[in-house]
Nucleic acid binder design. Structure first.
Ligand SMILES: [Mn+2]
Ligand SMILES: [Mn+2]
Ligand SMILES: [Mn+2]
Ligand SMILES: [Mn+2]
Lengths: 219, 219
DNA sequence: ACAAATTTTTAGCTTTGTCTAAATTATTTA
DNA sequence: TAAATAATTTAGACAAAGCTAAAAATTTGT
């Protein structure tokens, strides 16, 4: 598999996990930042190779082999992200770009040993689950902060948007994974929240609240 | 720079260090395991980019920029090899292939931090010097084992041939970097040697002896 | 149901990096 | 030094991965 093929497979996997039922050529083109015509070409190639189901005008989906491939690339991507943060001291907003390159390195042993070096982490620096060697993907039983009722207490376990801009915003406001959050007040007008993070009180917009994954703590 | 361009630059650098004065199209083709016509094409492209001096039929050489580029790739290659051995427990005959891929990852910060994680190593697992951030290349003041006179004592500091076959041969015979070696006898007929490695006596062919770098110990 | 708008595909072109076969230049050898 | 041999370049082709523009299919709106 070429880097490009791997990137398409990964994109299709992410589109599929995001809940869309039928994955259109345009959707893939947008995610890949390429043209629909290029996508059509690639879908034919991936279909040849048995990685996707593809019928003209009908959208695309991953075959079992395609899914396995996607999970293996995502596993590598996320393990490398953990490595960059834990072993090399990268910030969580710096790792994605480099992991995009590292995820394409081909060596089963490399990734197994890396997993071991990192003590078999279950989540990447953004709280996303790391697929196992055999493609088992842990299910985050988390919800979005914005959906909690007033008075709830929860732990921050992940970010939905892991763009550098958002991550740096969180850094500036000292919001990190593991923080305990309590919903104090919800503004009807714009759905913004007043929350308590550890000891600190903070006002965050609905936008922010809907990009933080939390796990409720039962009291 | 593409992976392919980087690989050509590295090949030319290695040919140049191996003492040949004029680097022919055929020599590059052989090293790259490609066809001379492909080399000609690539030399034109690299020349365009200011990385090599190239005149039809005259052979090729690296420009200062080309040399700097080569050293940077070699630095990455060797640092990754150290990482694979020291941090992931790879054997020294398993690292080259993976390092061939890793050397193309683009991130200045990654390589600086890796260097730091490894405590700024000066040599790779095969005894080859690791170029510095600014392209300084340490000079091995070593010689080949086969050239020592009888009775000399020396430390094994590197291998000339770092193919997996040779490295595994050394493993099987428990020959490793750092071993102390004494020349006991030299066979006139085939230049084979009887040597003492640490406490053990061993008979090695001229082939083997000419692929081990040693540093003489003055008595 | 039919026209308009949108989506998707096709056709044809580009670049990179490769190849084979043919032509050209350089080097050896007789 | 002239022919033979070897090295190198050129010409033409191909596959991967992209693009633009045009054609075709699907979906939407009235
Ligand atoms: Mn990422
Ligand atoms: Mn990628
Ligand atoms: Mn190597
Ligand atoms: Mn390489």
């Amino acid at each position: 598999m070429t880097h490009s093929e791997e990137n398409y497979i990964k994109a299709i996997f992410h589109l599929a996990s995001s809940g869309i039922d039928v994955i259109s050529t345009n959707a893939v083109a947008e995610k890949m930042e390429t043209k629909p015509s290029s996508v059509t070409d690639m879908m034919k190639r991936l279909s040849e190779k048995g990685l996707v189901h593809y019928k003209k005008y009908q959208g695309v989906s991953l075959t079992p082999l395609g899914t396995k491939t996607a999970l293996s690339i995502i596993r590598k991507h996320r393990l490398w992200e953990v490595f960059l943060v834990e072993k090399l001291g990268f910030a969580w907003d710096e790792v994605h770009e480099v992991a995009e390159q590292l995820e394409h390195i081909k060596s089963e042993k490399l990734i197994d040993k890396l997993d071991e070096l990192l003590s078999f982490p279950k989540f990447d620096p953004h709280g996303d689950p790391i697929p196992g060697k055999n493609g088992e993907l842990m299910e985050h039983d988390s919800q979005v902060l914005g959906q909690l009722p007033i008075g709830s207490v929860a732990l921050c376990v992940g970010v939905k948007d892991s763009s550098a801009v958002f991550l740096r915003f969180l850094d500036r406001n000292s919001i990190a994974l593991g923080n305990k959050m309590k919903i104090l007040e919800k503004e009807e007008f714009d759905n913004s929240l007043r929350i308590l993070i550890d000891e600190r009180e903070l006002h965050i917009s609905q936008q922010i609240a809907s990009n933080l994954y939390v796990k409720k703590i039962e009291l």
